[in-house]
Design a protein around this nucleic acid. Sequence first.
DNA 1: CTTGCACCTGACGTTGACGTCAGGTTCTAG
DNA 2: CTAGAACCTGACGTCAACGTCAGGTGCAAG
Lengths: 130, 130
Amino acid sequence: MRIGEVAEKAGVSVRALRYYEEQELLPAERGPGGQRHYPDTAVARVELIQRLYSAGLPSRVVREVLPCVDSGEPDPALLGLLVDERERVDERIDDLLAVRDRLDLVIALTRDPEADCSRLERAPAPRPRR
Amino acid sequence: MRIGEVAEKAGVSVRALRYYEEQELLPAERGPGGQRHYPDTAVARVELIQRLYSAGLPSRVVREVLPCVDSGEPDPALLGLLVDERERVDERIDDLLAVRDRLDLVIALTRDPEADCSRLERAPAPRPRR
DNA sequence: CTTGCACCTGACGTTGACGTCAGGTTCTAG
DNA sequence: CTAGAACCTGACGTCAACGTCAGGTGCAAG
């Protein structure tokens, strides 16, 4: 596949794909004219990259864990890093759930000001930050 | 409370609090010497701001919905915006859950290469991006 | 062959959420 | 009263993940 097709299928810009290559997140073969050529698996890899970014993993970490996470190949040297990041993702999930609950509460109150506001507590017991 | 105490309790920098005031996210009273003074509720508000940022809400949206979300005061004009953002938060949660599952899989494989890898599918059926 | 779109390589611009530094002021402990 | 910590206001720096522009090349169609 050429770059434009990958970009469209993965829902990202062409620029982003060139950036990923530069960052060594997504290698590309080159045709005789210098054009990039990608295997079909590239689309899924881009989607994974996007999810990792969306999960808030810093680019350095993405670069380190990507080969391992993408292929499923275990790498004992990365275990600690993987566990740490899993922990952070978990915390973020809790944050997001709290925000969602908060939004739900306000939405419910907006739709029906007499709604049962007691089901959701005011503040969902924040945990210590970094 | 003075700015340093709020910063410590909320786990953010003093600079961040001044930035929040500048962005009209967190107003501050001023003492005679020009020093900022915050009510006790400021700590919770800062934590909420952090969570909203962490949830990926753009600053413009945070600025708009913060008063309403913080106080719980309903504002019908914001209903659409709130619902939209709730939707986006939901999508991010799904992303994070997928990433966590992925990390769990690799961690399990690293710890025990003979583990049951079939329980988690290779790709958790990505939904269309923005 | 040429038109036109997709692609190429630099290289500079952008945005958000602060970090950091300079140079001065205010507050608090002894 | 005085030292030092905590605070103040600019103002410039930073970093990631691209956007955008300029100027040139590759490739499939008619």
